[in-house]
Every structure is written in structure tokens, then in C-alpha cells.
Amino acid sequence: MVKYFIIRLLNNNLLITIILGLTVSNLPSIVYAADGKLISTTGVIQVEGTGGSGIVPWATLSGYDSREQISATAFLTRATVTDYELDIVGVSASFYDRVEVSFAQQKFNIDATNDEIKQDIIGIKARLYGDVVYSTWPQVSAGIQHKILKDSAIADALGANDSDNGTDFYLSLTKVHLGAVFGFNALWNTTFRYTNANQLGLLGFGGSDDDREIVLEASAAILVNRYLAFGIDYREKPNNLDTTEDDWKNLFVSYSPNKFVSLTAAWLRLGTIAGVDNQNGFYISLTGHF
């Protein structure tokens, strides 16, 4: 299945891959699905294509693979705020609960001008320590996201230092506390990201200078049962350009009825984006595990 995914990825027919993948996953006799983790403990896929919540990468990898398993994951996300939309498709593979590789395509639409900005993100993340559920200390992972901006005109117009590509480095700590909050399982995540990406990179990288800095991202969630989680995300943003970039916040609910699929919805408060303030809206994301 993973080999099949990579071949399709090379052909760049992402959407076909996802649709085929979802169809085939209904045939358990054909498909290998990793199931070596407790349900809902993998998180979902965040906006840059790596395992996490809505907007924050977590230390968890994208799949349900344990140390003997390989898993593949595909996702579709749409975020709609007052004046913009962001559509994302992506795939990832996770090997032996150790390394995750990911690829995501973002398409950002500006309603007022009908402009479209595309960006590809190639990611790799390695688990350095621990198990999100079982170890005494949090699970720790380090990752890299290489972002290739396909449409540079707006980044150039806004004065970004680099409008071609940029690379983020991050370190995430994630822990589930069993029965910790009135008997409910609770999760927290903290991510430190070294970045100069403006609005994920869609508006280029850096301002008048390279402007790299460490920003803080965090999530907290409560699993109300085995299948349903409620949580919040906070993502500090670099704010390198003259047009303000506000920190991002969301409230999310994630439903994982089985180990094959999960659906996440979020209410977004993204502040000012490219000079237009009060960008609030909704986010919906479908993740499939193979």
C-alpha cells in the first residue's frame, strides 16, 4: 500500500490516490492497516501535513503504527475564513512509530481578487523519546518542514525577504494523562518552531531581513470518550511583514469512530491576514489511515 502511494505521488495524482485509497480501505482483506496504538491517540493531520491537531504539529506521528508496523495516511482539509479559503490535500507514511514523511499541497484563495497561491510542503519528523500514553515523560519528536512557494507575486509585493522557499524546524512534546481530569483522558502539546514563514509560507519567508525566530505553539484536549476529543490550539506567528500577522487560535472537535478514519471540525480565529483583519471561520478535515 505504501509503495502504491509513493508511485501515485510521483504521478502527482493526489486526489485520485486519496479517493482510491478511501475506497480500497473498505476491503480489509486487501488492505494492510496498522492498528498498534489505542484509538484516538495518533491525533489528526495539521495544516502543513504532519501529525498533530488542526494548526499545531504534535510529537505523535501520523499513523497507528507500532514499532513493528508501517502506516499510510491521507487527508483533505478546507479552512474558510471571512475573506480567504485554504484547501489542503496530503499524504504521509509513518515507519515503525519512529519516522514520518509527509507531503502536502496547499491552495490559498483570496476572495477579493480571485488570486490563488499554491505551496507544497515536504516534511519529515522523527520520534526521539517516549510514548504519548505510556512513558512517564512526554513523547518528544523533532521535525523539518520544507516549503516550496509556487506563486511568489504576492509575497514579493508584501516585501518578503524570500518568495521561493523556506524551511521550518520544530521540536514537539506531547503527553496523554489517563483519567487525569475527572476521569477523562487529557492531552497537552507544546511545540517550539524555528521559522521565518509568513502565514505558513504562503506570503513568503522573512520581512526586510531573514528574520528567523523561535515561536511557541500549544494544544490542549480532553477525550470525552474513546472516539471524541475537544481541544484548543494556539500558534504564535512570526509577524515579519508590515501587514500584521496575528497569532492563530482555534477550538476543535475530532471524531475517530474507528482506526481508519477521523473527522475534525474547528472554529478559527486567525486575526489579520495580508492586511485584512478579523479573519474568523471554520475548518473541516478528513483523515484516512491505511
Binding site: 510514548d131 500514553v133 505510556y134 494523562h177 489517563l178 483519567g179 476521569g183 477523562f184 470518550n225 474513546r226
Partner: peptide, 16 residues
């Protein structure tokens, strides 16, 4: 209940 199960699992988990 779900919450009781979580509380028991929290006691079992360190033995993994």
C-alpha cells in the same frame, strides 16, 4: 464507566 476505565488504565500503564 469510561472514566473508571481510564482511572484503572492509569494504574496499569506504568507496568508496560
Amino acid at each position: 464507566t469510561h472514566r473508571e476505565r481510564n482511572r484503572v488504565l492509569a494504574r496499569v500503564a506504568p507496568f508496560r
